[in-house]
Amino acid sequence: MTISDLRGLAANPASGTGNPSSSPLNPKQKRTWRSYSVYVGLALIIAYCLAPFYWMIVSSLRRTADIFDNTLLPAPFSLENYAKVFDGSTMFGQALLNSLIVAGVTTVAALILGIFAAYAISRLNFRFKSVILGVIIATSMFPGISVVVPLLRFFTDLGWINTYQAMIIPNLSFAIPLAVWNLTTFMKQLPFDLEEAAMIDGCTKWQAFRKLLLPLAAPGVFTTAILTFIHSWNEFIIALSMINDPKIQTATVAISKFTGATEFQAPFGEQMAAGVIVTVPLVIMVLVFQRRIVEGLTAGAGK
């Protein structure tokens, strides 16, 4: 059997998502050994993924005095670090709000532009279509620093340093390609027949788009929104370069600049607490929308 034969088989599975069920050919004792080793493997994977994150949470719940403890649970449980993070001197609450504004506006803007672009690419016939899609995807490979250096100067001339738009506009350089790509792959999967039928019945293209395609594409739009939001929330180099006023700083930059009262001892407890706070919204999103996120990631294969 050659590979091309296999490919032919692969292209024609009974169901796309169907997990191969364990083979009934195997005798039972072999299965128990197998499932045992599988569980060990799974435990290892989960430990690998979660242990560092767990360590961050545990450390954030220790008192400053016993931050260097190595116990698996915080010995005296304490919220001291969280209180310190929000005590006002660090402006961390403001930083979270800034992150929310920047990531939120970036996501909405990228989605609006992305929906139009994806509709055109997936539904309309026009020249240079694949060239345009290729260019949009190629832009997602553009290194952040190559955007930051020239725009830093441009925005300085405009007086835009320390403004939200100085972060939001450069953020679009990665958010738009991500959104266009995800939405295009999603819209291409939706059946065209319904819209055609609607248009035969007298709907205009716009009506077919608004009343048929958009509701159908809602899950894809939602997935794209989550992915774009997470990417924008995690953005670092743009926010670091464009902003030097702590009032406008985003959360990722703010925590990287957390310093203690003395240079000698970094405030690890506070840093961990702040890290947990920045990460928790994302982890909740991941837990709730995991299936969609995985779908979106594998569809776009993006970033």
Partner: peptide, 23 residues
């Protein structure tokens, strides 16, 4: 499994830098 495997992906790189500096 899927949820836990997404956790490292979702942790912002800056936070993961801090986390590993602590480790």
């Amino acid at each position: 499994l899927r949820a836990s495997i997404l956790v490292p992906w979702a942790v912002p790189t800056a936070v993961s830098g801090l986390l590993w500096r602590w480790i």
